[in-house]
Design a protein around this nucleic acid. Structure first.
Length: 589
RNA sequence: GGUCCGGUAGCUCAGGGGAUAGAGCAACAGCCUUCUAAGCUGUGGGUCAUUGGUUCGAUUCCAAUCCGGAUCACCA
């Protein structure tokens, strides 16, 4: 309807005033609540060219549109705004159609395949709050893209090799006493993470010791036995040393098991996991390719570079002088491999905005190499999660652990639910399921409701709320509707009531009507927050409607059926929408 | 220093050329003999960082300045 208004307005102003505007130049808004109407056309832009008063133009456009669009019931002009009220028939038809057709909100296929990379953890420590945001955003963006008609391939990348991985390995080798996740009864990723911390602690002691012997900090760092040993270990790893590789396999195996548990708790999934240990050598072929195409050049010392100064960036190293690859080389190799594997039209990387520069380079370099996939490379750059005290720092122990956080959320959900006595007649498994859905719903919604691009502050002290603009509020709204439906029975389902909607019903209908537009917008902006905000509006509109109108006790049977259909449709949209955010919605709470 | 991102209510965040700038939390006042009160209704709270510019109109766009963050590695 908005689009129709835009198109018709464009042709009308063209005919009436000779203004050559396209439909995109026309502003159509929802009518502000203090005025009468559903949609509003802004006519200020025509005033100057038409050389008439806004009120006059408004009337002319209003008359013309009313003739062109039969769904328009009436219009009024306020200053430079024409507010259109749609016929009740329009809203009534919308409700009946949408309620009867479960695919009403499905969008047509775009015939595009989109790959989304998210998570991307290192295998030397457990997932933390930063990964949580990454995974929530990446997963939700994927689901939204699917809902918008795309085929989506979700992939993960494991940073499973390198000096930082060797640190936890070396610490385990030295201090591990052959303990295992099983023997210590902790998750494998946490066990390995503990040794990563242990390495750092022991290293600090060594450095301090050397400094008391008169070495400078720099010298001490260089000469600390642990630092020397860890470099040796990396060399052994790269040489394929059997013992080191076996240790690496074992410890990474523990980590993968631990991650798998965390992914299950989060409820995310992947079509394929890539490992840098498998792809880090592939980039070298691309380096060769770039050299032969004269896109890259070799410096006298042997390092391979690309000059990006013409594009406003710097000179970038692509291969070290000793012939080993750097970060960007691996990503080039991985991108190539992924394109061969899936041939996606787009490759979206869900990675924090501290790597904006890196992805600019990646895109530019692939463009210079004339890779088919270059244009489809897209960085879904999200802001970091900071604590009230500033950035999370693993060395200072201020990192918020993902597993701990989720456990805490579920525990809080349980406490609050028990305090309200909501689960008194629940079975134990149903109650546990509810605590999980509420705790995770609160956490996911809290993270996803804010614009991914912006950095956000997370305060672990003030635990996440369950009231107001939250996941549980929306879950509650859904459960409330289900409860009403249970009491009402099914007779409304095939009814076709014709009712003139009141204000709160109209408000709700309008929000539901806009849902597919929001999906499209969220997909094209890769922004789950747009969807989260809209579902909240829907739930809020429903609760106002619910407070003002009796559903099961409506004055007539027809009105009762009408309100039941409206409630049912609201529940359907809430469930669909929340699903795209990765949030489950309970039948009772 | 160069580049990029941000600054909106006490706090956490929406809005992004259009009408009197919105939510939630926190504070205060009402609403459960009626479908779930994790709800609803209301009150108070704003120099949209500052200064210029563009325009019929700027919180929104542009520039400069200030503040905060990121980034510019033969680290990943």
């Amino acid at each position: 309807m908005e689009q129709l208004l835009r198109e018709k307005t464009a042709t009308i102003v063209n005919k009436l005033y000779g203004i050559n505007f396209s439909d995109q130049d026309i502003t159509v808004n929802q009518t502000a609540k203090e005025f009468v109407g559903d949609f509003t056309v802004v006519i200020f832009p025509f005033v100057k060219i038409a050389r008439k008063k806004p009120e006059e133009i408004g009337k002319e456009i209003g008359d013309a549109l009313q003739k062109e669009i039969p769904e328009i019931d009436s219009y009024n002009v306020v200053k430079g705004f024409v507010n259109f009220k749609l016929k009740n028939e329009f809203w009534n038809n919308f409700l009946l159609k949408a309620a009867a057709d479960e695919n009403y909100f499905s969008l047509p296929s775009t015939h595009k395949k989109i790959m989304v990379e998210y998570a991307g953890p290192n295998t030397n420590k457990p997932l933390h709050l930063g990964h949580i945001r990454n995974i929530f955003i990446g997963y939700s963006a994927s689901e939204i893209l699917k809902a918008a008609g795309n085929e989506v391939v979700k992939v993960n990348i494991y940073n499973d090799r390198g000096i930082h991985i060797c640190k936890s390995m070396l610490a385990y080798q030295k201090f591990g006493n052959h303990e295992t996740p099983k023997s210590k009864a902790i998750k494998g990723d946490h066990l390995v993470g503990d040794y990563y911390v242990k390495f750092d602690q022991e290293l600090k002691i060594q450095i301090a010791g050397l400094m008391t012997q008169g070495q400078t900090e720099e010298e001490a760092k260089k000469n600390a036995p642990l630092n020397i040993e860890v470099k040796e270990m990396l060399l052994k790893w790269e040489a394929g040393d059997a013992e080191v590789r076996a240790l690496w396999e074992m410890m990474n195996g523990w980590v993968y098991d631990g991650f798998e548990e965390t992914y299950n708790l989060i409820g995310c999934d992947f079509n394929k996991h890539y490992k840098e240990s498998d792809t880090y050598l592939l980039g070298k072929n691309i380096v060769e390719e770039g050299l032969s195409k004269n896109v890259f050049y070799k410096r006298p010392d042997g390092a391979v570079c690309v000059d990006l100064t013409a594009d406003g960036l710097d000179e970038k190293i692509l291969m070290r002088s000793d012939g080993t690859s750097v970060y960007i080389t691996q990503d080039l190799g991985t991108a190539d491999l992924r394109y061969k594997d899936f041939e996606p039209d787009q490759m979206i990387y869900t990675v924090a905005n501290e790597q904006d520069y890196h992805f600019k380079v990646l895109k530019l370099v692939t463009q210079k190499l004339e890779k088919k996939y270059a244009a489809g490379i897209n960085h879904l750059s999200y802001g970091m999660v900071d604590l009230p005290t500033g950035r999370m720092k693993s060395r200072e122990g201020t990192v918020v652990d993902a597993d701990d956080l989720m456990e805490e959320m579920i525990r809080t959900a349980k406490e609050q639910t028990l305090a309200l006595g909501k689960t008194e007649n629940f079975s134990e498994s149903e109650a546990e399921k509810l605590y999980y859905e509420l705790g995770m719903g609160a956490l996911k919604f809290f993270i996803l409701k804010v614009d991914p691009r912006k950095r956000m502050i997370f305060n672990p002290e003030e635990s996440i709320d369950f009231h107001g603009f939250t996941g549980p509020f929306i879950q509650y709204t859904y459960a409330r509707i289900q409860s009403v439906k249970r009491k009402a029975g099914n007779s409304y389902i095939n009814s076709t009531p014709v009712i003139k909607a009141n204000d709160s019903e109209l408000q709700l209908l309008l929000q539901l009507y806009l849902y597919p537009n929001i999906i499209k917008e969220a997909a094209s902006n890769l922004d789950p927050a747009l969807l989260a905000n809209h579902i909240y509006f829907i739930a809020k509109s429903f609760n106002s409607f619910y407070a003002e109108n009796s559903i099961t006790q409506a004055e007539t049977e027809e009105l009762k059926n009408y309100r039941l259909l409206l409630s049912d449709l609201t529940a359907t949209v809430i469930k669909k929408g929340m699903k795209l955010l990765g949030i489950e919605v309970p039948e009772r709470m």
